[in-house]
Computed example of a mutant assay.
Amino acid sequence: MSNDDQYGGGAGGGYGEVGGTGQTRTRLPDAPADPYGPTRRTPRTSRSLITVVGVVVLLIAAIAFANSAPDTKSDPASDKPPTDSSTAATGTDPVTAKSAGIPKGFAHDEQGAQSAAANFAVALGSDGMFNTSRRGAIVQAVYAPDVAAARQSDLDRIYTDAQFLSRIGLDPAGKAPKGLTFISRTNPVGTKVEKYSADTATVSVWYSALFGLAGEGSKSPVTESWYTNTFELRWIGNDWHITDFTQKDGPAPVGQDQRAATAEEMAAAVSQFGGLTYAR
Score class of each variant (00 low, 15 high):
Gly237Phe: 01
Pro221Tyr: 02
Ser126Asn: 05
Val189Pro: 00
Tyr207His: 12
Asp161Ile: 11
Ala107Asn: 05
Phe245Glu: 00
Pro43Ser: 11
Thr39Trp: 00
Gln111Ala: 12
Gly212His: 06
Phe164Gly: 06
Asp5Ser: 09
Gly10Trp: 05
Gly275Ala: 12
Ser74Ile: 12
Arg280Tyr: 01
Arg44Gly: 06
Ser115Asp: 15
Leu180Glu: 02
Pro76Ile: 10
Ala33Asn: 09
Leu180Lys: 05
Ile236Pro: 01
Lys73Phe: 09
Ala97Ile: 01
Met129Gln: 06
Leu233Gln: 02
Ala173Glu: 15
Lys219Gln: 12
Asn131Gly: 01
Val55Cys: 05
Ile183Leu: 08
Asp257Asn: 09
Tyr143Leu: 14
Gln163Ile: 00
Gly54Thr: 04
Pro38Gly: 07
Gly215Trp: 02
Pro145Arg: 01
Ala89Asn: 07
Gly19Lys: 04
Ala69Pro: 01
Thr39Glu: 12
Pro188Cys: 04
Val189Lys: 00
Ser126Lys: 01
Pro32Ser: 14
Asp75Glu: 14
His241Gln: 10
Trp206His: 09
Ala214Gln: 03
Tyr227Trp: 05
Thr228Glu: 07
Val52Thr: 03
Lys73Trp: 11
Ala11Phe: 03
Arg157Val: 10
Gly105Val: 05
Leu276Ser: 09
Ser166Cys: 03
Asp5Asn: 10
Asp127Ser: 15
Pro145Asp: 05
Tyr196Met: 04
Phe65Ser: 14
Ala77Pro: 04
Arg40Tyr: 14
Lys73Cys: 03
Ala33Asp: 14
Gly13His: 11
Tyr278Met: 03
Pro38Asn: 12
Lys80Asp: 04
Gln258Gly: 11
Pro251Glu: 03
Gln152Ile: 04
Pro253Gly: 02
Ala88Cys: 07
Ser2Val: 04
Glu264Gly: 07
Arg157Thr: 15
Val18Met: 10
Thr24Gly: 15
Lys195His: 12
Val18Leu: 09
Asp127Ile: 08
Tyr227Lys: 08
Lys192Asp: 11
Gly128Pro: 01
Ala113Cys: 03
Leu124Gln: 08
Tyr196Gly: 00
Gly101Arg: 03
Asp4Leu: 13
Asn119Gly: 09
Tyr278Cys: 03
